[in-house]
Structure formats: C-alpha cells, structure tokens
Design a protein around this nucleic acid. Structure first.
Lengths: 345, 345
DNA sequence: CGTGGCGATGAAAGCGCTTTCGCGATCGAA
DNA sequence: TTCGATCGCGAAAGCGCTTTCATCGCCACG
C-alpha cells in the first residue's frame, strides 16, 4: 500500500504481464464476462490489486460504444430547487448504471459551446430551464444524443417534463382573492425563465378570472437580495395588498423589505413564494411545493429509456416525443392572510 | 435541421468523406491545431455542420491520454452546504477546462465500488467528508489518480482542505458562556462525520477552558426532523440552557421542538447552528458561516495543480501533501441570548 | 486408442480520435 | 531556371479496452 510515485499509469497490459496471461483474460476476469479457471482468475485478481489497477473507462467506453454517463445542465445550485433536482437525477441515474456529469451555465457566456461539448461526453442529456437557446438544444438532439427538457418549453420531437406552474398560480391567485386581496403584484422576470413565465401567466389568468386586472410583473432576479430591492421600491408609495414572488428567495426578500418599512405580514401585506424552501417554513411563508427530486428522477429515467430504445434498434424510427407535467401543491402558511385555524407547519 | 433518425452516429470519418479530405485534416480544422487552407477549412466546417457532427470525447480523450474531467464525491445535496461546495467546484473546474462528474454516496451501500469506478473516469478526484473509507481513498491515490480530501481527516501523502471547525466551536463556546449559559448540550453525531466530530471536540475544549464540564453529545442525524426529535427528548425533563446543533438544520429542529413545548428562545433556551443557511437568517439563528464555495473552488484548483504537476513530469517525485484550513465566521443573531444592540441581519 | 466436443486462453481487430511522419506541390531566392 | 524551404495534407500508428475467432489441451465416449 505504499504510495509509489510510478511513472506509467497502470494498464491492462501491465496486469496481464504481471499475471502471466493475455489482456483478454484479464478483461474477462475483471468483467466476469466469460468463464476463467479459478487459479488463473485468482492470479489476475492478485496482480490487479497489487498494481492498484483501475481500469480506464475511456478504453472500455470506446470499445463498448457507450459512455455509461449522462449529463444534466442547470443554471446554478443556489437555493434548494436545482440542488434537489440534481440529487434526484443522480440517484436515479446511478441506479440505472450511469455516471452523472453536471454543467452549471450560471454566469458563463459560452454556455452553448459548453453544452455541446458536454453532449459529446454522454449517452443522453437533460437540459433544464433557462440555460441554452432552443437551437442548441435541438441541434444536439438532431446530432443523435437523446435529450430531455426539464422545466422548460417543449421543442418539437424532444421529451419534456414540467411542473404545473400556471395551474398552481391560478390556485394561488384564487386563494389570495379569497383572502380579500385585490391589488396583487408579481415579483420576477417572466422572460428570465420558463418557470417564472408560467407562474406569471397563471397568476394573471387567475386574476382575470376573478375579474381583476392582470398585474404588471416587477422584474427582478431570483435571489433574496434582488427580491428585497425590488420589493422596497414597490412598497415605497402606492403599494399592493399582496406580493407574489417568483420563488421563495424573492418572497423572503419581500418579507425583509416589508419589515424594513414597518409593514406587518399578513395584516398590511400578503407575500407568497414558490418552492417551499426550508426557510419558508420558518418565515411562515405561503408557497407552492414542487416535486423536485421527482422531477430529476423522472428525467433520468426518461433519458435512460431513450438510450435503451436507440441501443435496442438504432434504425427504428423514434417514438414520438413524450410530455409530462408533474403536480405541485399549495402550502398555506400565515403570510398570505389570516385563516380560521392557525397556518400549518 | 430536420431530426432525421440516422442509423449511424456521425464520426470524423463521415465528415472527412463528406468534405473530401482525410480525417487528419478534419481534426486539424476542428481543433485548430495546425494551419489548413482556408478553402479546405471551410468545406470541412460546412460538412461538420451539415452532419451535426459532435466529436466523441471518448476518442479524443483516449488519444490525448486525459479525460479532461474531474470528479467530486459527497454524501448528498440536502441543505445548502454540499450544493454550494459542488457549485464552487464546478465553477472553478470548468474554468480550468475540466468537466465535472458527481457522485452522491448518500444512501448507497456500494459507495467504495462506485468511487473506484468514478476514479477510472477522471483525471483527479475530490472526496468529501463521510463518504468512503480511508483504504479506498488511499488506494485510489496510490493508483495514480490525484486525490484531494475535503472536510475530512488527512491521510498520509494526500492533500487535504478543511475548515476551522474546532476553533470556531471554541469561539462559539466562549460566546455562550459569556451569555451566562452553563448547561450546554450538543446535538449531533461526532462519529457520523469529521466535521461534526471537530465541532464537538472544539465545543468540549472551549467549555473545559471555561471550567465547565464537557457535554455529552446527543446523537442525531443532520436533518431538521432528526434535530427536532432529539431536542424534544432533551427538553423533556432536566433541560440545558443552550443547545448547540451540529448544523443549522438540526438547530432549526431544536427551535421547533422548543416552540412546541412553549420555551422561548433565547430567554429560556439558547440555540446555535452551523453553516448559516438561508433559513437561519429568518429564524434569527446564531450560527457559524463557512466559506463553502471557496472550499469547492480551492479543491478544484488543487486537483488541477496535481494533474498539471504529473503531466509536466511524470517521473518527478510527488510534492509533499498539502494541508489547508479555511477560516469560518461566527454569525451572531438573537437565538444565543440578548445583546446590547439587536442581533445582526 | 481414435475422435468429437468443450472449457480455457491468446491473437488481433476494432471503437473515434490525435498526432507524428513524410510526401508532393508551391514559393522565394540565387 | 534550379534548389532548398515551406506549406498543406494524407497515411498510419497508437491511446486502453472489449470481443470475436481460432487454437490448444483434455475429457468422455465409441
């Protein structure tokens, strides 16, 4: 177990020579793909162990014609939303025998190039929300790499999984109206992400249905600080009854802004968010819970299925694109208004 | 841009044939590694685009002898801690030209095998906290794959990066004592993770230094629910003045448990955590902030450096193992006791 | 004893790409 | 016009592994 500074990386040839067999035999022993005499087998295993042999996946993958790896592309991991989705993805993917490559497009400008590069490293790819343009995504799919879109507008011929943003927003709108709120503002940038767009559209539709005018969205980023700043502006003057945050971070920012100017929630102002992050519970924030792990896990399974389909029969025409919308759940707490019974935990 | 169901994946040979050149020329054009006549170059690019050619990274990596990918192993992504570390890692690694493979050992039992397998896919590897046993980690390093340990006890000959858990805990202990707390309980399992062990040890040392008896740790998981349950038991009877949670989730659980039995924080009970998650701010929780992204980014850079060293001169003996301890910061809020000025934001 | 059959093993052909080597062709200078 | 120097490009050798295909003993059976 001494950490020798060996000059050459250990290959299957080394092991073969050390054990006095051919590389074919080494492969068979290590993979267990064919019967090998017990004695030989033992020699090979001993050699592999002695040399700390770790097979190079590149060789294997190249020979097998598959990476045994999938990728997932997301904007970032700030806040629990993407982290949970990625975790759900990783769990499911690794159960299906694939390693997971991640790519955060976050603040990089060469996102498209990075995603294309990633596509060359994987058997299949999940692309989330607001990361790359449609042309890039479509191009990758056309190039033969199965793609699944997540929390994003569908594209022709590509599988898509989303949550019920618009519908949840309608439910939320109705709930707010029921509480007597009339002037409702939306904090978030519909152009910034498909999720936000759906939420805003649903909210607007819900308010219209109640005979109220659709609100103008107040554009802001998805972090607490951005929400706080935007809310501060909004609350300084002719303020609304309720603020619907594009996500919980933004809504929590709105709570801070309200506290800063001495407004009481929910008496003076209602606030709601999206995602049910841990902090929402402690802030008493009404929010919409999304099945984040489930989103990730479903995406992993879908990618896997596409890969399997193609492997089974590369010439068969592709099955039509699948669509799925996962349900969400309104979590009512005290920030949206007083309820008969005290708000749930 | 029609999504043809092509039977064969596009290789460099296809492109070469389509453009009427040799594969060498295609490679040169696409990599830009050697001068190619403008006219030829244009033909090749056109062919590549027409065929949606995405070079297969396996071929390239095998030829180049490097994966251009690094891996990071962590327990899970629940809570912001690991997510932030991973994000910091991804950012730094991709800036250095490496893709990132992730592996969550979470609830799997074949963690060691999975990590070894991962080691065969990468040029270097970061192993976090409580994921695999020392022998596995050491074996991988001995096999020639550069390894960096993160938030984990050092091993001979392997680079290690940690945070100042014990020292921060001492500061925290002093602060609690200063508030007049005497009976201080620790919520967490020191055997469960090196971080927790360090925090407990530091707390115990700090209390000893103040002439107080070292507390027994109350073992519990790292989730809110676990903290709540453990705290509930702890508070039912001869209760402590203060509870130090192994992380914020646990501490938040303790807050819930306290509220459930009508205890006021901080008047009846002080509570502190670790990590400064978003919820801590809204719960007014005193906590210790860790440089999470910085941890990840530093790890990425160290792995990169090791790889570069080895590539530059494979025969040079390895530089001695490096150690680094990143600083933490005590974030005082109201949950630890009353302060002259109201607790920070 | 002679064979067909089978289990164990080795030789070698790729997988898709990069890169060295070398060969014509073209160019500048004498 | 001629000769060495470039330049542009193709041929081919790997990179580490899996996987036919062939071979070689060895056994049981006739």
């Amino acid at each position: 177990m001494k950490a020798l500074s060996r000059s050459k990386p250990v290959t299957i040839y080394e092991v073969a020579r050390h054990a006095g067999v051919s590389i074919a035999t080494v492969s068979r022993v290590l993979r267990g793909t064919a019967p090998v005499a017990e004695q030989t087998s033992a020699r090979v295993r001993a050699a592999a162990q002695a040399l700390h042999f770790t097979p190079n996946r590149l060789g294997r993958s190249l020979a097998e014609g598959r990476h045994a790896a999938n990728g997932i592309v997301f904007p970032d991991l700030v806040g629990p939303y993407y982290a949970e989705v990625v975790l759900g993805y990783e769990e499911a993917a690794s159960e299906l025998g694939s390693s997971v490559l991640i790519l955060a497009t976050g603040r990089r400008r060469d996102a498209a190039a990075a995603v294309v590069e990633l596509a060359g490293r994987v058997d299949g790819l999940v692309i989330m929300g607001n990361t790359v343009d449609d042309a890039t995504a479509a191009g990758i799919a056309a190039g033969g790499v199965p793609v699944v879109l997540l929390a994003r507008e569908p594209l022709a011929g590509i599988d898509t999984i989303r949550t019920r943003n618009a519908a949840s927003a309608k439910v939320l709108a109705a709930h707010l109206v029921e509480h007597g709120h009339r002037r409702i503002a939306f904090l978030g940038d519909p152009a910034g992400s498909p999720d936000v767009a759906g939420r805003f559209a649903g909210l607007a539709a819900g308010l219209r249905a109640a005979g109220l005018p659709a609100p103008e969205p107040v554009s802001c980023g998805l972090e607490t600080a951005a929400g706080e700043a935007a809310a501060a502006v909004l609350l300084d003057g002719d303020r609304p009854d309720a603020i619907v945050g594009a996500n919980d971070e933004v809504a929590l920012g709105a709570l801070l802004a309200a506290a800063a100017v001495g407004l009481r929630v929910p008496d003076d102002l209602a606030v709601t968010g999206w995602d049910d992050v841990l902090a929402a519970r402690f802030a008493g924030l009404t929010t919409v819970r999304q099945p984040m792990r489930e989103l990730g896990a479903t995406a992993a399974r879908w990618v896997h299925r596409r890969i399997a389909e193609r492997t089974a029969d590369p010439n068969r025409p592709l099955a039509p694109a699948r669509r799925r919308i996962l349900p969400t759940q309104l979590v009512v707490r005290r920030s949206c208004g007083h309820h008969g019974t005290p708000g749930g935990s």
